[in-house]
Simulated scan of single mutants.
Amino acid sequence: MPMRALLVPDPHRGPGYAVLELHDAAPPDPPVFFLRRASDGAWLSGTGWGQAETALRPEAWNTDRDRQLLMLGTALVDALEPGDAYALTVPGAGSCALETDDHVLSRASGGNGAGRTPPPSPSRRKRLGCALLGVLIFVAWLAGGVALWHGSMSAPASPAPGTAPDDTAEETSFSLFPRTDPDGEPTYEQEEMSKP
């Protein structure tokens, strides 16, 4: 009977870990295997996918009745993508297609708490978008106010009605501390200057 390989979630270690079950295969000696991706023919190594055939070693292994159990960690499980097909080779036992439980790959891809950050929910995106829009509107309002203020400060004074364009009227300037009192009373500065 040909070897059969099945990748299932590890019930003892949780998300991101898996058990590689080898059915109808002798215990691998040494316990190594090779994994090839069908989409591009790349081989899995401890550092990702590449063109070199690389032996992979499980974190632990044992025999349970008629199957060999190889425990895989997150470094290998996270490299597997849902929807892709894989071929498994065990030295001395042969090659076969790797059957994968969808729960293993969905957990490795970030679903169901695999240790990766899940994508933001749509409502969270809306809140971030609204906050960003609010900040942009405030900045635009502030820039418009500064532009208006700057424009009013640099605009030339228009002549008063009834004066000829050639007449030069003295421009009145704004001062927080006027030098003359509107009621005709002497100001503090005038009083200080008149003292001996």
Rank of each mutant, 00 (worst) to 15 (best):
L105Q: 03
G151P: 01
E170L: 15
G129F: 06
L72P: 04
D167I: 11
L70M: 13
A87E: 15
R124V: 15
P161G: 07
P161I: 14
S154K: 08
L98T: 06
D84C: 05
T172A: 06
D101R: 03
T168D: 10
E170C: 04
F177D: 09
L105C: 06
A85K: 07
L128D: 15
L132F: 10
L136S: 12
G144L: 05
L136M: 11
A131S: 12
F177Y: 14
T163D: 10
D84S: 02
E99W: 05
R116N: 01
D167F: 10
D84P: 04
V90M: 01
S154P: 02
F138C: 14
A79H: 05
G134T: 12
F177H: 12
P159C: 04
A79C: 12
V104E: 01
T74M: 08
A75Y: 09
P178F: 02
R125W: 13
H150V: 08
H150F: 02
R107I: 02
V77I: 11
R107M: 13
S106D: 11
V139C: 12
L148G: 09
P161V: 10
H103C: 05
H103A: 13
S121R: 13
V77N: 03
L98V: 07
A108C: 02
T89K: 00
L72V: 10
A108G: 07
A131T: 12
L80R: 06
L136C: 12
H150Y: 00
V104G: 04
P119T: 03
S173Y: 13
P120L: 14
L128K: 10
E99Y: 03
D101F: 05
A93V: 00
C130T: 15
A160E: 14
C96H: 07
P182K: 00
A93E: 09
E170D: 10
L148S: 10
L142D: 09
H150P: 01
R107C: 08
E170Q: 14
W149G: 00
T89F: 01
A157R: 13
A131R: 12
A140S: 10
H103G: 11
L72S: 01
T89A: 12
G129P: 01
G145K: 06
A147R: 01
A93I: 03
R67W: 00
G110C: 02
L72Q: 03
A140N: 09
G162N: 09
C130A: 15
I137V: 12
G92K: 04
R67F: 11
D66K: 04
N112I: 06
A140G: 05
Q68L: 01
L148N: 08
D181R: 06
Q68E: 09
E99H: 09
L69S: 00
D181G: 02
D78N: 11
P119N: 05
F174T: 08
P178A: 06
G73I: 04
W141D: 14
T74V: 15
P120I: 07
A143T: 13
E99K: 14
T163Y: 13
T168A: 13
L148E: 03
S121E: 15
R125Q: 15
P156F: 08
S154D: 05
T89D: 10
L76M: 12
R67A: 11
D181M: 05
C96E: 04
G115S: 04
A85F: 09
V135E: 01
G73E: 07
L98W: 02
A108E: 01
G83I: 14
